[in-house]
Amino acid sequence: MKIAFTAAGTNWDSMIDPRFGRTEYIVIHDENSEELIAIDNSAVKNEAHGAGTATSQRIFELKPDVLITGNGPGDTAAKALAHMKMKIFVGAQDMTLKQAYEKYKSGELKEV
């Protein structure tokens, strides 16, 4: 399974970025290889509109099975994400990636 996080940093101790479209980083954890890869999403800061679709496009290309985020995607991003098979879990704001991953594993995050 490939797990994607919206993150304010690049490692397990980084905080979850509660925003979807405007997340600073997308961090991917591959459960098979146990690798952690961070993708810089900060260029989206310069976009007045369309951050949700821009980030959705990036996530689509990374093909994760699961997305863990905070507030949850906005309306437009939600429409885009509906076309993907990925499961989305929200409510991980104020957690580190590690904490969020553990909560996901124990079934304590809400699926949308």
Partner: peptide, 23 residues
């Protein structure tokens, strides 16, 4: 098309092109 759209109003999801009219 998704590359030339400055407003991220077009996405390409595999074999599908999505247009977001509100963007």
């Amino acid at each position: 098309c998704p590359k030339v759209c400055n407003f991220h109003a077009i996405m390409q999801l595999g074999p599908t092109i999505l247009v977001f009219p509100e963007l």
